[in-house]
Design a binder for these strands. Structure first.
Length: 413
RNA sequence: CGGAGUGUGGCGCAGUUGGUAGCGCGCAUCGUUCGGGACGAUGAGGCCGGCGGUUCAAGUCCGCCCACUCCGACCA
């Protein structure tokens, strides 16, 4: 991709009113555009990153047996009345009238629809277990949208729903979902702490949140310095310095962002909506459910919160919008840069080529702001060679022109 | 929903005691530059968030509304 043709120029200054790191950097670097509080458009660079996150999530969900579907965000009131949640969620759900008196809501979550789909098709214990997921936008009428991509009114969400014949089977799947989630966050460059949290209104059991520690987070969790004990302060009775109830070590308070959350739903929805199956003896049983959420857009914001410096974004290599940012910073070497660009394209390496007529300083600064994982710099200083460096600064060096493809492949192996 | 702010060219801002708008960046053309946000010249671009009021005259004063931001409340 030629940077001279890329839609979404970098901005020298942060948009008025943006305060969070993720919103400022993503706006300045040309990844997102704010439409209104809590609703952002993804520009070409931004959509590439979001898509990469969604793809990682998709792969890991398929790896634990998830089948991808896609449900409407627009839903009828009647369905939500079956579970009583039309009333329960009226503060947070966008609810409105269509033609005549017909009432609709925009999905805050999809339990009602998925249960409706499944109850029409599920008949036997032989159909269980079943794991369905989708990646879709959710709508929540937040009292206060804020922090850029971290708390939106419309945001990308992966929601998986699992259906089981026994509590044990739910339990087993739940325990499989935890490492799958950890793998997702690891691939996205986020540390995730599995944290016990409120199970919500339908269960006394804990749910589990995946918390990415960062000083900019809006959640607070108590974690043990020695073992894996961790609880959200919403439910935790301990204070910093107290003894860990699990191992006796000291606990500490950490700020973090909730990037995922998994729940055992039990039979709440099956009971309300009549989702049953025939067991081995032909007797009707209620299906036991679990639900598992991750917000890809929130993950994207969180990654920027965690991975940035004073120059800009530092994308983890799995999320970088392009593998290579090729910078031509000397007109004398335009031909060399062109050649490298063509070589990389031939090897199917995603490259953003800064062919703009800008000064070296502008290009170097923009590259740091945009944060593509690997920069290739074609300038006078290196004579007929070129400099490569990862945005994190961990890896850098000077190589010959014909070693470029090899070097790029080595970094991404 | 309470409290506090802010709305002025594409973006970020300034605008005195009311007299019909200015700066920086960006953009366009030309020239000189080119390893960390270069420089000169010329130029385009604005119902000053909206509605109503006061006044000879409103970006500026008054009222109402809208949007955005921050703090709080909220966060199946």
């Amino acid at each position: 991709m030629l940077q001279s043709k890329l839609f979404g120029k970098t901005l020298r200054e942060a948009p008025r009113g943006e305060v969070s790191n993720n919103a400022i950097l993503l706006s300045r670097a040309g990844y997102i555009d704010k439409l209104m509080a809590g609703a952002y458009s993804y520009l070409p660079l931004g959509y590439k990153v979001l898509a990469k996150i969604q793809q990682i999530v998709r792969e890991e969900m398929e790896a634990i047996g998830g089948q991808e579907i896609y449900m409407p965000a627009l839903q009828p009131k009647e369905l939500w009345q079956e579970t009583g949640r039309w009333e329960v969620l009226k503060e947070i759900m966008f609810q409105f009238k269509g033609r005549g008196d017909k009432e609709f809501g925009l999905a805050t979550t999809h339990e009602e629809v998925i249960v409706d789909i499944v109850r029409k098709r599920l008949t036997s214990y032989r159909d269980l277990p079943l794991h369905l997921f989708q990646i879709q936008d959710k709508f929540r009428n937040e009292p206060r949208a804020k922090s850029g991509l971290l708390r939106g009114r419309e945001f990308s969400m992966k929601d998986l729903y699992s259906f089981h014949a026994s509590q044990k089977d739910l339990e087993d799947y739940y325990q499989k979902a935890i490492p799958a989630y950890q793998k997702i966050f690891k691939r996205c460059g986020l540390q995730s702490i599995v944290t016990e949290a409120s199970g919500g209104v339908f269960t006394k059991e804990f749910s589990h949140e995946f918390q990415a520690p960062t000083p900019y987070g809006e959640d607070e969790i108590i974690t043990c310095e020695l073992c894996d004990f961790s609880q959200n302060t919403e439910i935790c009775k301990l204070k910093e310095g107290d003894k860990c109830p699990k191992c006796g070590g000291k606990v500490k308070l950490t700020k973090s962002i909730e990037v995922g959350n998994i729940f055992k739903l039990g039979c709440k929805y099956s009971a309300d909506m009549g989702l049953t199956y025939a067991d081995e003896s032909g007797k009707k049983q209620e299906v036991i459910m679990g639900c598992y959420g991750i917000g890809p857009s929130r993950v994207m914001g969180s990654v920027v919160e965690v991975h940035h410096d004073d120059k800009g974004i530092v994308w983890p290599k799995n999320l970088t919008p392009y593998h290579v940012h090729l910078l031509q910073i000397s007109d004398k070497r335009k031909k060399d840069a062109e050649k490298i660009y063509q070589d990389l394209i031939k090897q199917n390496i995603a490259v953003l080529y800064d062919d703009r007529e800008e000064s070296a300083g502008v290009k170097l600064n923009d590259a740091d702001l945009i944060g593509i994982n690997l920069q290739l710099i074609v300038g006078d200083k290196t004579k007929d060679k070129i400099e490569y460096r990862t945005r994190s600064g961990k890896d850098r060096g000077i190589i010959k022109m014909d070693e470029v493809v090899k070097a790029v492949e080595k970094i991404y192996h």
